[in-house]
Amino acid sequence: MVGAGAFARIDASDWPVVATEAVGADEKLWVSGLGTRWLFKPVTTTATGHRQGEDWSEKAAAHLAEHLAVPCAAVELAVRGGVEGSLSRDLGPAGFEVQSGALFLDALKAPGFVPARDLAADAARRKCRPGHSLANIRTALDGVLAPPGSSLPASFDAYDTFAGYVILDAWIGNRDRHDENWSVLVPELGNGPVHLCGSYDQAGGLGFNLRDERRCEMLRLAAGHDVAAFAERGTAWRFENGPDKPMRTLVELAVDALELASGAARTYWCEAIARLGSVDGATVFERIDSMSDLARSFAGALLGINGRRLRDECERRF
């Protein structure tokens, strides 16, 4: 049931296309409207006719990020030419180039790093995400500043902020933080500091691609087949793994990130995680008309479970 103040779905049918987005499996369009650029991403409808929920999951993620003060792109629900989707606001300020993590790590010759797109012909190595590790990201971001306008503590550098991105991923169950789903802002003229870009492309969480029948089953089934079991299967498969580097869960990776962060950032994020239990995701979900009641119930349960898992892992390690 949709509550009062439902989020509007913007009709961007007449917004001019200014560029296409090459990153990702599906075509996305940069369009111009409301005085800026936005990335329009259509929802996916599978071959069996199942409409996935990338639009509502990304909208919800942007609002949930506010509870962690994670800087991220503004997101609007949208429709373009009769196709529903989302609009994600451009995070590139004037005078800066948005450079993906893949390009940034490659340019800095991060040890063992190979961009995932360069491994298209080697599926086995591609799955292992060579060199896309927290250690390499931490080293690469040394000297890089936090995103412009960030409301996080002034002492936070880029990596302290990036740790918040993977905490958000673990909370919402987003497994898609690959090497082109985070970026830095590089001055176009080569003068001035490099900044981390705000977080973006967070549509991969909250069980966005499940059918309501499956959500219903997990909400009523016992341990091993329930929402908790689904949460525990949330692995950080977009980060380096392999025979000698077992794949981490999203929760384990998030707390790994805190171990590499500054002491002040570790304290801040642990305190933020401790407060997640008081966040009522329903206040966001009730405003999204494209979410079914089962999608809202499932997403709320997932947030509660992952919040507890993050808190327990922090308490275990720190």
Rank of each mutant, 00 (worst) to 15 (best):
K109F: 09
L103W: 03
D90H: 08
E76A: 01
G95N: 03
G112L: 05
A107L: 11
G92P: 06
K109Q: 13
A74T: 11
A120C: 01
A120N: 14
A110G: 10
V70G: 06
D106F: 07
F96T: 09
P93C: 12
A69I: 06
K109E: 02
F113A: 00
V98S: 00
V83Y: 06
L77T: 07
R80M: 05
S100Y: 02
L105R: 12
L87A: 06
R117F: 05
L105A: 04
L91M: 11
D118M: 07
A110T: 10
A120P: 08
P71C: 00
G82P: 02
A74S: 10
A94S: 14
C72R: 10
A116N: 04
A78C: 14
A78M: 11
P111L: 08
R117V: 12
S86A: 10
Q99K: 13
E97G: 09
D90E: 05
A94G: 13
E76G: 04
S86T: 13
G85N: 05
A74L: 09
V83R: 09
G95R: 02
P93K: 03
S86N: 03
G101Y: 04
L105I: 05
A102W: 03
A110I: 01
A116C: 09
G81E: 04
A110Y: 01
L77V: 09
V79H: 00
V70D: 13
D90R: 13
F113Q: 02
G112F: 05
L108G: 05
G92I: 10
K109A: 11
A116F: 08
A78Q: 07
R89L: 04
L77E: 14
A94W: 06
P93I: 02
